[in-house]
Simulated scan of single mutants.
Amino acid sequence: MSEHKDNRIGVLIMSYGTPESMDDVEAYYTHIRRGHAPTQEQLNELKGRYEAIVGGVFPLRENTNGQAAGLQDKLEQLAPGQFVCYQGLKHARPYIEDGVEQMANDGITRAVGIVLAPHYSIMSVGGYIKRAQEKAAEAGIAMSFVKQYHLHPKLLKALTDRVRDGLKRLANASDDEEKVKVLFSAHSLPEKIRELGDPYEQQLLETSAAVAKAANVEDWQFTWQSAGRTREPWLGPDILETLKAVAEEGYTAVLVAPIGFVSDHLEVLYDLDIEAKAEAKALGVKLDRIAMLNRDPLYMETLAESVLEAQNGLNEQ
């Protein structure tokens, strides 16, 4: 550990992580599977999905780097010289532990952790925080965390603007004749989170309702996507099932708002833009999707203001 104390506050920006290249896919998938290598069939399928989204590029890595840089810039504007950002990824390098270790090596003794996901679940954000906390305790770093920011006014405004834009696009493409349903979506988790009293589902519904109200959308529902393939049941209905139901109800257009995600990545670019779009087309339904937040200034402000608030908790420790 560095003997030189750095008085700045470290900010550990945590996210899921993604491979840097096609060569890294197997190691990445093995890490997700807790050390169990995927079968050749599973590996080929995942590689095929990456190939399908513009020829195997890895947008999440670039987007996450951009979000980290954007947050650093915004913190510098709001509190000059007070914060320094680090990345910690769940399933790729630099891992969460690497980010904490780097802070310790740089002489950081106080830090705030934030996950690039607005909604809290013990199985998602909670897992990131646990890993960061354990490593921070070992490294002698005092840490506080932003657990959720799903109702931050600036996040809601950014999402509302996108829903309005998406509805305008659909209306312009069809002379206002389409019967449109807005589908808010997020990554499914195993059903057992309901038994744990986990807030994830409720927080997603709160965000959906707030955005729908602000955008004057009455015709909406929430649906799940991207469930894992395990023996245990996952939260549903999945968006592919929801699209069938929506088509049967006579809707001719759908706007998908994946509010559980903040970046363009596989679950958006493949699961929605390729898989769900193909299903909608087969059902005779026009499907559009809102633009992702990525480096939207309102999202950067949401993150920065959430970090500043968590810093107050750190000062009280």
Rank of each mutant, 00 (worst) to 15 (best):
E218C: 04
S174A: 13
R231E: 12
P258D: 01
R162V: 09
F261I: 11
V256D: 00
V182P: 00
G228Q: 06
N216G: 07
A215R: 07
A173M: 09
E248F: 04
E201L: 07
T252G: 14
L204R: 07
A171E: 01
R169V: 11
F261Y: 15
G197D: 10
E206F: 04
E178K: 14
L235E: 00
R169L: 12
R164F: 02
T207Y: 09
V217P: 03
A257P: 05
L243A: 03
E178Y: 11
A186N: 01
H150A: 13
L189N: 06
E248A: 15
V254K: 00
S263I: 07
V180F: 09
V256E: 00
Y200Q: 07
L243S: 02
P237Y: 12
N172A: 13
A227N: 11
R231F: 12
A257E: 08
A210T: 11
K157D: 14
W220Q: 10
Y200W: 06
T160Y: 08
G250Y: 09
L189I: 02
L255D: 01
F184H: 02
N216K: 15
E241C: 03
N172Q: 14
S185I: 10
E249P: 04
L156R: 01
R231P: 03
Y251I: 07
S263Y: 11
R194Y: 06
S208A: 15
P199N: 08
I193R: 10
D161Y: 08
W224S: 01
T230C: 04
E206V: 02
L155T: 01
K213H: 10
F184V: 11
A227F: 08
E195R: 05
L205I: 05
P233F: 13
Q225A: 04
L167F: 12
D161K: 14
L183F: 14
S174V: 02
D161C: 11
G228R: 09
Q221W: 01
V246Y: 01
V211K: 00
K147W: 08
L155F: 15
E218M: 09
A158Y: 00
A214Y: 02
F184S: 01
T242W: 00
S188P: 06
A209D: 14
V246C: 06
L196E: 14
V256N: 04
E191A: 15
V180S: 04
S263T: 15
V217E: 07
L189P: 02
W224A: 05
K179S: 14
G250V: 03
W224N: 01
V163Q: 12
Q225E: 11
W234N: 11
K192W: 10
D238E: 13
A158S: 14
L205C: 10
V262H: 01
A257R: 07
G236E: 12
R229F: 06
G197P: 04
A253S: 15
D161S: 11
A186Y: 03
A171C: 05
L156Q: 02
E248C: 02
G236P: 02
G250D: 10
E195Q: 14
G228E: 09
Q225Y: 03
L151R: 14
E206M: 08
L243M: 07
E178C: 12
I259D: 00
D198K: 10
I239D: 01
G166N: 06
R231V: 09
L205N: 13
L243T: 00
V256L: 13
I259H: 01
L167M: 15
L240A: 09
R231Y: 06
L159N: 03
P190A: 07
Q221D: 03
L205S: 06
R194D: 06
Q202E: 12
K147M: 12
F184M: 05
D219G: 02
E218W: 04
S185N: 07
K179W: 03
